[in-house]
Design a protein around this nucleic acid. Structure first.
Lengths: 178, 178
DNA sequence: ACGGAGCGTTAACCCAAGTTAAAATTATGA
DNA sequence: TCATAATTTTAACTTGGGTTAACGCTCCGT
C-alpha cells in the first residue's frame, strides 16, 4: 500500500493553535505526524532553561521523535506550533505493523528514512564546519521565508547562538548601507 | 533474506593500510561498507584545507555516503583508515534490488536506518547544545578508548575545535593535580 | 491616545577558542 | 643509540560570541 494512502486512512487530524505543544521533551511519544499546513519548532531545553532549536517543520514535512518511537520511548525534545498548524497523527505501532507485511510500504519507508538521513547529515555538516555567521548566510539563502515568519530569538536558537549574537551578525552581514 | 547473509554472499573483502582512503570527497561512491575490524575517519575538507571530522567508524559499523548512494551520487566527505582496516564492500545497487523484492531484507534495512537516524540525531544534539568542553567530557566518558587510539588533532577536528584548543580543554578538565 | 508587553538593537565587558609560533615531548627509523 | 620527524603543550595576542542591561520600536488592548 502507498504510504500516504495508509496515512489518510489511519491518521487523525489535529489542529494546533499558535503555542500549542504536540509532544513534550521527557514524555512518551508514540505517534508520527504529517504537517498539512503551518509551522512548528522542535527544541531542546536544558536544566538551566536554555533552548536549542533542532529544526523547523513546515508544510508536507513528516516529524516524530525517532529516539522515542524506535528507542527509549521518551522524546528528547518538544514540538511546538509557531502558528496555526494542521497535522495528521498516526500511531507508530500501525506503521510498524504495516511495514512488516507490506513490501511496497516498507520500501517507501526506506525512502523516507534515506531522505531524513540526508537532511540530518546536512545539518550535522553545517553545525560542524560552518561558523555562526556562515550558517546565517546559508539560512538566509535557502530559507529566506523563515526570516519573516520566525522570530529572531528562534532563528538564533536554531543557529546555535543568542538573539544578541544574531543581531550583531545581521548587522555585519546585511550591512548598514549608511 | 537476512541482511548479513546477503552481505557475506555479495560483498568483496578489502584490506586498507593505515592512511588508505576508501572513497574521496567529491567523487562517486556507489558502495556500502561493513567494517570487520580497524578504524576509519569520515571527514570534510573545505577550500582552505580545514578538516572537520564527521565520525569515526569502527568494528561492526556500516558506512557509506547516504548523499552519494541515495542522492547526488557524489560523496561530500572522504573516508580514511587510521589503522589497518578490514572491510566488506557491496554495491548499493544490489541492496536496492534486494530490498525491492525481499520483505525481510527491506525491514532490516528500515531497522538499520532507524539506528543511523538516532546516531545522527545524537550528534546533532551534541553539536547544537553542548560547548566544546562539554563535548570533550562526553566523549571521554563514552569513548575512552578513542583517547588512546586517535591523535589529538583528529579528536579536536571531531569536536569542532583546533588541537591547540583541545590541549587547553584537557588541561582544564583533567587537571594538573599539581 | 496612552501604557504596557514583546521584540530587536546597541553598548560594555568578559571569556572561550582561534592563530601563530616556539618549546617540549614522544615516536620512528637508520 | 642518536637524529629526525611528528605530536602535544605552552605562550601571546586576537576575535567572535556570551552576558547583562539599557534603549527603542511596534503592536495591541483598553
Amino acid at each position: 500500500m502507498n504510504f500516504f494512502q495508509f496515512f489518510q486512512q489511519n491518521a487523525k487530524a489535529k489542529v494546533l493553535a499558535k503555542g500549542d505543544v504536540l509532544f513534550h521533551q521527557g514524555e512518551a511519544c508514540q505517534q508520527l505526524f504529517y504537517v498539512q499546513s503551518g509551522l512548528l519548532k522542535g527544541f531542546y531545553l536544558d536544566e538551566q532553561g536554555n533552548e536549542s532549536i533542532k529544526s523547523f517543520i513546515g508544510d508536507n514535512d513528516i516529524i516524530t521523535s525517532v529516539q522515542a518511537v524506535a528507542g527509549s520511548g521518551i522524546s528528547s525534545f518538544s514540538l511546538q506550533a509557531l502558528e496555526e498548524t494542521h497535522v495528521l497523527a498516526i500511531d507508530f505501532a500501525l506503521i510498524e505493523a504495516q511495514r512488516m507485511k507490506d513490501l511496497t510500504f516498507a520500501n517507501e519507508l526506506v525512502g523516507i528514512l534515506l531522505k531524513f538521513a540526508m537532511k540530518k547529515e546536512r545539518r550535522e555538516f553545517e553545525l560542524l564546519t560552518l561558523s555562526a555567521e556562515q550558517r546565517f548566510i546559508q539560512l538566509a539563502k535557502e530559507h529566506a521565508i523563515w526570516l519573516d515568519k520566525i522570530t529572531q530569538n528562534d532563528l538564533a536558537r536554531y543557529l546555535g547562538i543568542t538573539p544578541v549574537g544574531l543581531s550583531r551578525i545581521k548587522k555585519r552581514v546585511l550591512g548598514d548601507h549608511e
